[in-house]
Amino acid sequence: MGYKFDWKVVTDNWQNFLHATLTTFYVAVWSLLFAVALGLAVALLRNAKSPLVQAPARIYVGVFRSLPLYVFLLWMYYGFKIAFGLGLPAIGAAVLALGLISAAYLSETFRSGLLAVDRGQYEAGAAIGLTTAQLYRKVVLPQVVRTVLPATANQFVGILKGATIVGIIGVVDLMYFARTSAALTFKPFEFYSVAGAIFITITLVFAAFAGRLESRYRWRRN
């Protein structure tokens, strides 16, 4: 009883494949946006002068960098729903979980980017009369952005990889589609192969993009 390879089932379904891929991408992008915003806030807190302000940020980073996404996802989606009756739509839970965990990693990147700005920049800015707000807006943050851009792009690749499991809680993403199609058509090899190929292509494209960002923003320091 051999396995009959049938690639037509895949090509016939290319539109659904596309739609599912876009869903995965959609989840990843929203997670990134959330993670960047939260990560920046946490990084600024981490850099605060008072240890009291630093503490919650440090705890957050420590906890969320130790938590596997799968565990947190299930905990948030099912746990909260059954125990407290708080229902989040699957996509929302996915974005939240991915975002919270990624923000912890990103905040470390942002923090080192912030610290990498030379002290002299602050002095030069002050010496020409800039206020603190102007200093950050026009001098410090532009430099931080250029420094952390490659790492952020790399983090996005990590988010994409994490986003592959959101199908488990029911988000109709690439892998969910592959799984259900495989079950329906009894052609798992074809569907998983194509899904895998699509996924790798996307990842490698973004990884290459991150690499280009890295070479473009290499500062030759003073």
Binding site: P188, F189, G196, A207
Partner: peptide, 24 residues
């Protein structure tokens, strides 16, 4: 490059359900 670009979940599904079933 291949293995750095892939996610564990994708790989595991492909190997366990795809490869194993296709090639018995």
């Amino acid at each position: 490059q291949f293995f750095r670009g892939t996610a564990l979940y994708v790989l595991v599904l492909w190997v366990f359900f795809g490869l194993a079933i296709a090639f018995n």
